[in-house]
Design a protein around this nucleic acid. Sequence first.
RNA 1: GGGCGCUUAACUCAGCGGUAGAGUGCCAUCUUCACACGGUGGAAGUCAUAGGUUCGAAUCCUAUAGCGCCCACCA
Length: 912
Amino acid sequence: MAHELSKAYEPGAIEARWAQYWIDQKLFAVATPPADSTQPVFTLLLPPPNVTGRLHMGHMLNQTEMDIIVRWHRMRGFLTLWLPGTDHAGIATQMMVERQLATEGTSRQQLGREAFIQRVWDWKKHYGGAIFDQMKRLGASVDWERQYFTMDEGLSRAVREAFVQLYEEDLIYRGKYIVNWCPRCITAISDLEVVHEDVPGKLYQVRYPVVGTDDSLVVATTRPETMLGDTAVAVNEKDERYRHLHGKRVRLPLMGRDLPIILDDLANPEFGTGAVKITPAHDPNDFQAGLRHLLPQIDVMDETARMNENAGPYAGLDRFQAREKILADLRQQGFLESERDYVVPLGKCDRCKTVVEPRLSTQWFIKVAPLAERAIEAVEKGEIRFTPENYAKTYFEWMRNIHDWCISRQLWWGHRIPAWRCPECKTIVVARETPARCTNCSGSALEQDPDVLDTWFSSGLLPFTALGWPEKTRDLEVFYPTTLLITGFDILFFWVARMIMLGCHFMAGNAKGSVPFTEVYIHALVRDSERKKMSKTKGNVLDPIEIIEQYGTDATRFTLAAMAAPGTDIAFNPDRTDGYRAFANKIWNAARFIFMNVDRAQQAGIWSLDDFRKVLPGGKPTASVRGFQAVTLEDRWILSRFNSTTQEVQQALEDYRFHEAANQVYDFFWGQFCDWYIELIKPRLSLGDSSAGAVRTACQNLVSLFEAALRLLHPFMPFITEEIWHAVYDGKPALLSVALAAFPAPDPAQSDVDAETGMAILQDLIVSVRTLRADLKVEPRERVPVQVFANTEVRSLVEQNRGAVERMANAEKVTFVEASLAKLPGARSTARFEVRVVYEKKIDAAAECQRLQKELERSEKELENAERQLGNTQFLSKAPPQVIDGLRQRSQELTVLREKMRTAMKELGCGV
RNA sequence: GGGCGCUUAACUCAGCGGUAGAGUGCCAUCUUCACACGGUGGAAGUCAUAGGUUCGAAUCCUAUAGCGCCCACCA
């Protein structure tokens, strides 16, 4: 039979099969819709992984969240585009290939620029797809037909266009400034690519003799090697101590140059001696001071941070060796006044952790202030909404203190800057296509700027360039602005903030809005089970692929979803995944149970899956549950529960509370559908106990509800649901995939409060009997009589469901009594009923007394509390009525309970 | 130097003004014809500390302690 499931749930085979199926069927490919389409659109841009990337837990979390949201929207009828691509990742990729070259005993310099770039393309061709192969295993429902790469011809053209436009608008400029320089990567990097770290170091005080006097000025520095490039010493004009030195000069030790003493507010009289050395070529503050005072800029290092010819006797030394040598010389010549321990803030290269050197060089910059202004406004005005909200604060903080963005990199791999220099007249020509002649002197020997652009420049443009900009494409019209962005906070500034600035700028005036996306969901970090950050050096990195192989993709995805509470980091514990694998197994077996019964019914000629399909319009499931006939209390109850679960899941997903949605579905399947509904429906499925009509209804109900529940679960566990769902349709579904079926929608008509309270009473009664049996140590196989004392309402409820109660509670017979049972042995009281298990075996009076005592104490404490509140006029006048009513009712229940327990204890002879 | 977050059952975490929750683990028990990746029952928490606001605080405010993160050109 086509709907047969293997006995054991084995995710590996199932998942591989469906992942391939989804791709082969091009299930998630989205065609550009025609002009008259009215279908609502949902667009999500996949944060493009680096081509060099390997899937890690952070990706996996990100992918899971995106896939849940995407599948959910698709099932609700949105035209859903999830657009994938990879980033060329300038530095990262170049380093990777350079490392490879090194093992071959060569280097990029030996190869030359053109051959090197070719080499990177070759590398990309061979290895660049690795991360997407991994993504496919996760079941990510992206449109694989639309993959882009940030260095594709189209995107490269868009990058040039954007650069030229910004240049023409005077938002890009070129100039000689102090930038962060990595002497290992031999390139400029942006502020964001510098990681700050406080390290123990020293603060040195160096004495600079005042020329023509016996006096001297003492300056402090943490980086003595830069003194070789000093071109002044500054004191504050208001600093009385140095008034007599105004206009004088000092002699720079070791170098013997004379430096002016300048007056500048940079010198803080409160700090150190109040005098500060000025090194315009090696410090950003000094650089500014140098401009103010027209000081020379003496660069004493080369691009690898070795001392250069300007460093006199220190030329050729590495910067740190130079420091030691300079200190030794200062000490020897008596210029070193003091040295003391000092915590030094160090900037390191984000990529290679080399200490960054502030370096004077000519670079390209984006003037960000005007862009930031609009980017702030977009969030302030609610055009973009952050979740969790407090990330907006972080965003504002950063945007308001933003510095110009250095976008040129001295690399080979990347988008080459579209600027050419005329060697004749030194003019810089910026153009979309390679210019033939200099615009100034018509010289034809133009040389292109050797630098490339920061990777983040091109990725910052993606929301529109990936849709065809600068062409006015239909895709751009339909899919921009994208709906949502889901990403980690680590690239909030690198990427999110830049997309907002660039999107608002380039798409200004767009009919549907200029912002690149309207919603941003920022997720936290995945840490190890001890909440430690995963890192290679700590050796605590969990490989998602290994976890998947062990527990299955569905269980791994579910773990991440169930733990993804907004705003808190996830401590990933594989034990949890083990638990969710058990959950998948539970669903699997529920399906097997259902199919087993359906087969039986089919063989008896009563009902088959064809009958189920017939109740669906066109054989396709609808958003509601079709074919379900609520005849019994448990039917009404499970339908009502399903409806509220649907409601809760929808609300949770709308708010990106993935953990809540996952927990709702989990509890519904296991705690409600399996634990109660399936157990309750069992007798109705057997022809021996029920009529053919009843069996038919039971099968129909089981299948239709389960099928709808599979659709509810699908975004979370796409593989197992796909497998079982196809089985429900006997391998002949009217749709290619459950992923294309309708997501269950809440339906108020299915809500049934009476059924829910009724079931709650029955469940309470059944659990009470089970507990009593356990307390009385009744043999598990033995069925014992049960007595119930209750009001007519509860009594008729129990009477109507007597069979269910007897079976579920393993009772021989439920009988009703007319008098209180509280004082009899083996009884238990609740507010709504008293129940007794009639069992002659002697009960353990001491244990029972202990239990009653404990419960009594708890009740009394609560009662006391309630009465105190109810006696408080303030409470009565200020608390909401439903709270007061609730408390009154509870107080009455507790009073009754207390009496019952006291009676019982007295009868037992507990020492009261 | 600024800014932000966390501290709840043995563990990992939810809850964030109206009677303390989940999963795992633990204890007992059961191989009953979907599932031992299971069923049933149970034990387990002065919700970091000290004040305050409130009729009422794990939940809001303030301070303290511990842990963590982000941003920053003070020598």
